[in-house]
Structures are given as C-alpha cells and as structure tokens.
C-alpha cells in the first residue's frame, strides 16, 4: 500500500467518524426538551432546555400593555410575574416535564414544555 492509499483510507475513515459524531450530536439534541410560548395559538418564543444552560428570563408581550414574565432553568419553567387579573398563571407554580403547560387565559398565553423527538413524555395529555 502506498502513502496515497493510506491518505485516502484515512480520509474515508475521518469522513465516517465525522458523520457518526454529527449523528450523535443530533441525537442528543433531539432528546432535549424545549419551552414553547404561544400567544393566541401562535408560537412567539421557543428555547431548548439542556443541562448546564444559563437561566433565561423573558417578557411575553400580549398586547395592550398585557405581559407575562417567563423564567426558564434546566430544572423548571414558571411564569414569574404577570399583570393579568386572576394571577392564576403566577400561582400555578413551576412545570418540569414534557407535556405540561401553564395557561394564562386572560392573556391567551400558553407556556408549554415539549419533548425532544427521541424522548417519550410521561403523559400525552392532561384532563384538567
């Protein structure tokens, strides 16, 4: 075997290795949960939840001065503050698992945790 052959084989091996690594990375990414925020049925925000992530806090503008402040950490997701009349969303406390959601009916805001596509949620839906 000449050096040229060796180069080609090494190149081929490297190509496969990179491909496999890429797949692995995609796989783990697919396994992570996400937070999705919807306003009146339309997605307005989403972010991935993963180990080691920095805590995220953001304000959802529901129009006419209405707002909800959402806090996201690896451990839990909650509505920290809102100016809705019933404060049900704030009193809800945190959600942690895929399939769970916090609903602010007056503002038509929904904060939900969705499963990554390699992952099965504990429940498919909740009779509330």
């Amino acid at each position: 075997m000449k050096i040229g052959d060796l180069v080609v084989y090494l190149f081929a091996a490297a190509l496969v290795a990179v491909g496999l690594m890429g797949m692995y990375a995609m796989g783990t990414q697919g396994g992570d949960k996400s937070v999705v925020v919807e306003l009146d049925g339309k997605e307005v925000y989403s972010c991935r939840i993963y180990k080691g992530m920095a805590p995220v806090e953001f304000r959802v503008d529901a129009g006419n001065g209405k707002y909800n402040v959402v806090s996201v950490t690896y451990e839990e997701v909650k509505i920290k503050e809102a100016n809705c009349p019933d404060q049900v969303c704030v009193k809800s406390g945190p959600i942690r698992h895929a399939g769970q959601a916090i609903v602010c009916l007056p503002h038509r805001v929904v904060v939900k945790i969705t499963a990554g596509h390699e992952e099965t949620p504990d429940v498919d839906d909740i009779a509330s």
Partner: peptide, 19 residues
C-alpha cells in the same frame, strides 16, 4: 394514549398526579 389526571393544587398549570 396516556392521559394525566390533573393535580388539583397546580392552579393554572397542567400537571398530573396520576395516569
């Protein structure tokens, strides 16, 4: 389908206590 039974003290959150 796995349907969660709502936690009666979860307020506005859809969070379950049983399936």
């Amino acid at each position: 389908w796995r349907i969660g039974v709502q936690d009666p003290r979860a307020e506005g959150a859809r969070r379950h206590i049983a399936i």
